[in-house]
Amino acid sequence: MASEETDPACDDEIDIIDVEDNMKYLKPLQDEKERREIRHKYRTFIEDMERDKHDLINPESDSLNERLKQADELYKPVKMTREAALDSQALVLIANMGRQKAQALNTEFVKFQPVEFVEKLVAKTFLCGNVLEDRTISTEKWCSLGKAVQPSFKRCPPFRFINGSFERGEVQVRKERVKKIKEKDNTVDKATVPVQVQRVQDTDKMEATTAEVERIFAKLQECYKISKNNPLCYFEFVTNPFSFGQTVENIFYVSFLVRDGLVKIFLDEDKLPVIEPIENKEAEGSDKSEKNKQVIVSLTPADWKEIVKTFGITDCVIPNRPSAGVAKKNKK
């Protein structure tokens, strides 16, 4: 109620759009001390209400109305949200109590009082002449009350087995089932996850590259035999006169062979690079004595054309990769 009264006023003020005016609303208008005071008043107000709840919800008394007026008074100096929130809290409390007050309003000839009922009940059923000490009621008393009220319920009677007519054992079956399911779940989780991860890393790319490297190494050994163990011209081996892309790929794969110490590339007497597979025994010795050199090979399509021309390459030594071939050639 309190908030409704002042809301329209606030709206009017905000309607006047002025930067400076707006700034006024962003900055705390009120002194922090003043605000603290308002909040304190609200809190004591709410506390008091809760304390006096019994009196406030008594239909006979008018004190709830007075509290409402007090809340309206308290709201007058409120300017900031935090205090306004407290105001709504108080208002909710008043509304709630109002509802309870309405509920408690006695419109009946005889009003039912729960505590009174329970006391009568104790006197009637649980108390057999002697005073109920420390308010404990024995199991037997509860039992006899229960027996007395059972006829009020249309409960299905308890169900008993006649000896031998049914076989029990349901409980066991259920427990086993639950356990099995749980175990299965666990094992499936543990088993599947790592397997999947490993596969993702290993397959496809790595295997395809390895296979390709091995294919090229086999080809190199074959050519080496044909040339009667003479080193082969690097460019003639690697270059594919029909595809720049395939040429680059071949260079890439050959570099793996060099890294693994299976092949060596060196310059012959004409200062041209030649390639030669390394025999196993030789490899062991050379690995230790000679230091590996890293070379970056740069190759442009123009270079590639020139190489094809200069070396008079008309056919490729290394056949196209089965899947690549023509498509790749066209692209490049």
């Binding site: 729960p114 009940l121 039992c143 009350l145 229960g146 027996k147």
Partner: peptide, 20 residues
């Protein structure tokens, strides 16, 4: 019908609660 003791005690309590 004869009810187990536990049933009786519980129904007694339930009756009170339902009444309330």
């Amino acid at each position: 019908v004869v009810w187990p003791e536990e049933d009786n005690t519980r129904m007694g309590l339930l009756m009170i609660i339902l009444s309330l």
